[in-house]
Simulated scan of single mutants.
Amino acid sequence: MPAATRTCLVTGAGRGIGRAVAQRLSAEGHRVALTARSTDQLGQVAATLPGPSLVLPADITVASAVDEVFAAVEAEWGAVDVLVANAGSGVSAKLADTTDEMWRGQLDLLLTAPFRCVRRAVPGMVERGFGRVVVVASIAAKRGEPYIAAYTAAKHGVLGLVRAAAAELASSGVTVNAVCPAYVDTPMTDVTVAAIAEKTGRSLAEARAALAARQPIGRLVTPEEVAEAVWLCAVNGAVTGQGINVDGGAVQS
């Protein structure tokens, strides 16, 4: 990505990976628009950024919200150059106990919302001959995991979206990639730890240690390590159509 200041939009920017990505982009001198449902969390992230920021609270699972967020960025700074589709959450249940509501909720947030963001961003990027799209997926986009059928299906789907979009846009100056973390030390993982502890009777520390032990490096991934992979996708125009694992060696590719 050239040294000129770019306009970036990060979804799910209120905490965890989204926060770290926003901080990385801002530290490199770029304008960063932040969107998530929590106004308070977005304000806290904006206060940590060294460069210009926009706070745009929204629920991007609402169809009209995506266009409203993009329109707000365009009105203030112009078109989005770098889109990081990071918003996400997970639900856990046995396959037979996964309700239609749980299924729809995961697909809406993890697949349909990124699709709408990419669809909205791409025409302007193609017109300008430059764009970077990065979707924060999951290692669950690469392999099946028990008790998260809806989450895994959505993440497999969004990796397919990335690959199709990258193939279509390869000659346009627009790159499209996914970053696929394993368990990251974030509030989302805290929820998983609490659920494991409740179901197994383990302490929170024991449940966290069990998750860390599932990764060959023996620890949780940091949000900053994921943000570095996102940054690679932003700066390297020859990297496109990839699902970059940030998983401590759990899935070798």
Score class of each variant (00 low, 15 high):
residue 2 P to I: 03
residue 3 A to F: 05
residue 4 A to L: 06
residue 5 T to R: 09
residue 7 T to I: 05
residue 7 T to K: 02
residue 8 C to A: 04
residue 14 G to Q: 06
residue 15 R to H: 05
residue 16 G to M: 04
residue 18 G to I: 03
residue 21 V to N: 05
residue 30 H to P: 03
residue 30 H to M: 08
residue 34 L to A: 09
residue 42 L to E: 00
residue 46 A to S: 11
residue 50 P to S: 09
residue 54 L to C: 09
residue 55 V to W: 01
residue 63 A to Y: 02
residue 67 D to L: 05
residue 67 D to E: 11
residue 68 E to Q: 14
residue 69 V to K: 06
residue 76 E to I: 03
residue 76 E to A: 13
residue 77 W to T: 07
residue 78 G to Q: 08
residue 78 G to W: 02
residue 79 A to E: 08
residue 82 V to N: 04
residue 83 L to C: 07
residue 84 V to E: 03
residue 87 A to H: 11
residue 87 A to W: 06
residue 87 A to Q: 08
residue 88 G to W: 04
residue 88 G to L: 08
residue 89 S to W: 15
residue 90 G to S: 14
residue 92 S to R: 14
residue 92 S to H: 13
residue 95 L to P: 01
residue 97 D to M: 11
residue 100 D to W: 13
residue 101 E to Y: 08
residue 103 W to N: 05
residue 105 G to P: 03
residue 106 Q to A: 14
residue 113 A to H: 06
residue 120 R to T: 02
residue 121 A to E: 01
residue 129 G to S: 07
residue 133 V to H: 02
residue 134 V to G: 01
residue 134 V to K: 00
residue 135 V to C: 11
residue 140 A to Y: 05
residue 140 A to H: 05
residue 141 A to Y: 07
residue 143 R to K: 09
residue 147 Y to R: 12
residue 151 Y to F: 09
residue 152 T to F: 08
residue 156 H to R: 14
residue 162 V to Y: 05
residue 163 R to H: 09
residue 165 A to H: 10
residue 166 A to N: 10
residue 168 E to G: 04
residue 170 A to C: 09
residue 172 S to N: 11
residue 172 S to E: 07
residue 173 G to D: 05
residue 178 A to V: 03
residue 183 Y to M: 12
residue 189 T to I: 11
residue 190 D to F: 08
residue 200 T to D: 00
residue 204 L to H: 15
residue 208 R to I: 08
residue 208 R to N: 08
residue 213 A to T: 13
residue 213 A to D: 15
residue 213 A to H: 14
residue 214 R to M: 15
residue 215 Q to Y: 13
residue 218 G to P: 01
residue 220 L to S: 06
residue 222 T to N: 13
residue 224 E to K: 13
residue 225 E to I: 07
residue 229 A to S: 13
residue 233 C to Y: 06
residue 233 C to G: 09
residue 240 T to A: 13
residue 241 G to R: 08
residue 241 G to C: 12
residue 242 Q to A: 15
residue 243 G to T: 10
residue 247 D to M: 12
residue 248 G to Y: 07
residue 249 G to E: 11
residue 253 S to R: 14
